[in-house]
Amino acid sequence: MLRLGFPVLGVTDIERAAAFWSVALHLTVSGEWASDGWRTLTGPDGERVLGLMVSASPPEPRPRVHVDLLVDTTDEQDTEVRRLVDLGATRLEWAYPAEPDFVVLADPDGNVFCVVDLSRAPSSG
């Protein structure tokens, strides 16, 4: 049976990426499948959460697929964005809507991701 796995980010420096994402998301760098070109990051329960793979291709400046990191409040969003920037992320200039619920960042390898404030997400009602 086919099932959805986990996101994989292409990176140029596997050790730097593993250090950034493990601290950013409070994950553990697993020994599973570890090689010079691969790291698996797992959650507290050992579940695979994120894969990191060495890639020679550059990151897309406006990727169609990206990772969203979720928070529950605007204060938490501000705190997490500052923390991620302190870890090595870069805040990107973006064509934001009038009242965005997200902040666009790039990891140290240039992979674009968002920090989304769920308290400001559009209503589905």
Rank of each mutant, 00 (worst) to 15 (best):
E60K: 11
A56C: 06
A89K: 01
D78R: 15
D75N: 10
W94C: 02
A121Q: 12
V54D: 00
H26R: 14
P7K: 13
T42W: 02
N111T: 12
P44L: 01
S55T: 10
R91W: 01
R82V: 08
L105R: 11
G110F: 09
L27F: 09
W21L: 05
V65I: 12
F102P: 01
D45L: 06
D13T: 06
R120F: 03
G31P: 03
V65L: 13
T74K: 02
S57W: 00
D72M: 02
S57E: 13
S22L: 03
L105E: 10
W33E: 13
F102G: 00
W38E: 05
D68I: 00
E99R: 13
L52T: 06
D75G: 15
L69W: 01
L87Q: 05
R48I: 00
W21E: 01
G37I: 09
G125Y: 06
T90M: 09
S123H: 14
I14E: 05
R82C: 03
V103D: 08
L84R: 00
A95D: 15
D86P: 01
L69V: 15
A18P: 06
R64V: 08
R91P: 00
D36S: 14
F102K: 04
T28Q: 15
A106K: 05
G88K: 01
G37Q: 09
R83A: 11
R39E: 01
D68K: 01
G43I: 08
I14Y: 05
E93L: 02
G31T: 13
L84A: 03
M53V: 00
W94M: 05
F6D: 03
R39P: 02
R64D: 13
P122A: 07
V8G: 08
Q77L: 08
A121K: 12
R82M: 03
V104S: 10
A95H: 09
L105K: 11
N111V: 11
S123T: 14
V85R: 06
G88L: 03
L84M: 14
D13W: 06
T90C: 04
D68F: 03
W38N: 04
D78Y: 02
E15V: 11
L4A: 14
V71W: 01
V85K: 03
S22K: 02
P100Y: 08
P44A: 11
E60R: 15
E47Q: 15
D75F: 00
E80M: 08
E47T: 15
S123E: 14
G110N: 11
I14Q: 01
G37F: 04
S22R: 09
D86V: 00
S30W: 04
V71L: 05
E47W: 01
T42R: 05
R64F: 07
S57Y: 02
A18L: 07
Q77E: 05
G43M: 07
G10D: 08
G125W: 06
G88H: 03
V23N: 09
D107R: 11
M1Q: 12
R39T: 01
P108S: 11
D86H: 04
L41S: 06
F6C: 09
T12M: 10
F102V: 14
